[in-house]
Amino acid sequence: MVSSFFNAELYQIVWTSVTIAFYSVIVSGIFGILIAFIIDNTHGIVNKTGRAILNSLMAIPTVVIGLLVYSAISRSGIFGGFSLLYSPLAIIIGQTVLVIPVISSVLLSGFSGVDIRLSETLKTLGANGFTYIVAYLYETKIIIATALLTGFARVVGEVGISMMLGGNIRYYTRTMTTSIALETNKGDFKTSLSLALILICIALTINFLVHFLIHDKKEIGTL
């Protein structure tokens, strides 16, 4: 099993997984922050409906999202002309759709715990529009980091979207999860276990960081 850790292809697979997850989280982070910020600044029925929709979207299975995106980017789909299917970009699109509700929900939950005095202080000191948003996001950057890390942990471990939209193409779209599925089917448990170990390490590191950030957030009184 140790020898499988010195396999260059294994690191290429890890690199592909992490890079795709990174871009997915960045893109979904932009949309997620926007959605969370808008819903957080609404009141009454709009706020409740927005939260309910986000929570419902989190329950959609990854293969369903994979199927929907597949139907949109396959040859006969509305974006078929862009030849996106079985490319890293296809996985990024699918993972972005998957993780936007996750990031938005974590952000909304964090924003609702932020002291009302922050908003009032920024407003009374003269922040408005863009300056208000920038200052608010800066002050809540730990919540944002926590949401992004949660999103990263979600996408780096998913298999349905990567398999359906990426196609598990060697040296191109093969990720840790699709590779584990493939190698297990082939009976190569050494490689599967090595990848699983790396995946566990990444997941644990992210969870540790999230835990650390949440602890820090409590210390400075934003919860």
Binding site: D115, R117, E120, T121, E139
Partner: peptide, 9 residues
């Protein structure tokens, strides 16, 4: 100014 002011980071 609040009674218990909020410190910006």
């Amino acid at each position: 100014v609040h009674q218990n002011p909020y410190p910006l980071k």
